[in-house]
Design a protein around this nucleic acid. Structure first.
Length: 259
DNA sequence: ATGGTAGACCTTCTA
């Protein structure tokens, strides 16, 4: 089973690019982030015509996440538990039906810039909520994949030029510590565990020639429960998509699980 | 050199 995560930076502006990739790659499941539209404006019919089921947690203009799957989606939960006042659409969790069901979450973790503001506080609070929820999910002992744009650069090796990110919310000690705490619950970073994976970035800014200069970072992650990690076959970063026409600033990351 | 681009959509915010 191929499970993808991709921050598309507007599903409607990216529709041809995304559908073209789906036709070529045929993922079984895809977690999408930054769809930047309300549920009613998500191109559901276009995905259905390719044979996919769709679940959307949308929002006008900003954020918004979705999961698309070949098999039906069960137990759809919209929003990250722990703060009823949080109205950002950044989390959707569902169970991919089949002989071996897989629980997946599509995560758009807050960016948090600039540091020293309420945006950074919101990011850290959101990460605490995610850790609390992940602990409860791990207790279920299911095949679980927490996939998305984490807006976290885990280690210096995950940036082309780590020094340039020193003042950025994505690379703060608190941010990296919260990500480590999350993993220490018993989650496996698929990219780090996969045989042969190295030197992969998943995001290059539109600005300042970042792509041309390979000024990239690895911030799109798939965290696996033990049952999922046991089934991990491969991880592929689709770097070529950054050079496509009308690219997102993020590229797809695909894990293959033995399911 | 403190820059630059992209998307939503009304004017500036977010990234």
């Amino acid at each position: 089973m191929k499970i993808a995560t991709w921050n598309v930076n507007s599903i409607n502006a990216r529709l041809d690019t995304v559908l073209g990739w789906f036709k070529a790659e045929r993922p079984d499941v895809a977690c999408l982030q930054e769809i930047k539209c309300i549920d009613e404006k998500f191109p559901t019919e276009e995905f259905q015509s390719l044979g996919y089921n769709v679940a959307v947690n949308g929002q006008k203009s900003y954020n918004g996440v979705a999961v698309v799957s070949r098999t039906p989606l069960e137990d759809v939960e919209k929003g990250l538990p722990g703060d009823d006042a949080d109205d950002h659409a950044r989390y959707l969790e569902t169970v991919i039906s089949g002989p071996s069901p897989v629980r997946v979450a599509s995560i758009y973790l807050p960016n948090g810039n600039p540091i020293g503001t309420e945006k950074f506080d919101y990011k850290l609070a959101w990460m605490r909520r995610l850790q609390t929820h992940a602990r409860a999910l791990l207790d279920l002992e299911e095949i679980l994949v927490l996939a998305g744009d984490y807006n976290v650069i885990p280690e210096p090796a995950d940036a082309d030029d780590p020094a340039s990110w020193a003042g950025d919310a994505l690379f703060q000690p608190q941010t990296r510590g919260a990500f480590r705490s999350l993993k220490w619950l018993g989650l496996t970073d698929a990219y780090m565990a996969a045989d042969g994976a190295a030197g992969g970035y998943t995001f290059w800014d539109y600005q300042a020639g970042a792509w041309r200069r390979n000024h990239g970072i690895r911030i799109d992650h798939l965290l696996l429960s033990p049952a999922a990690a046991d089934r991990l076959r491969s991880v592929t970063i689709h770097k070529d998509m950054r050079g496509a026409d009308k690219p997102s600033d993020h590229v797809p990351v695909v894990v293959e699980l033995e399911i």
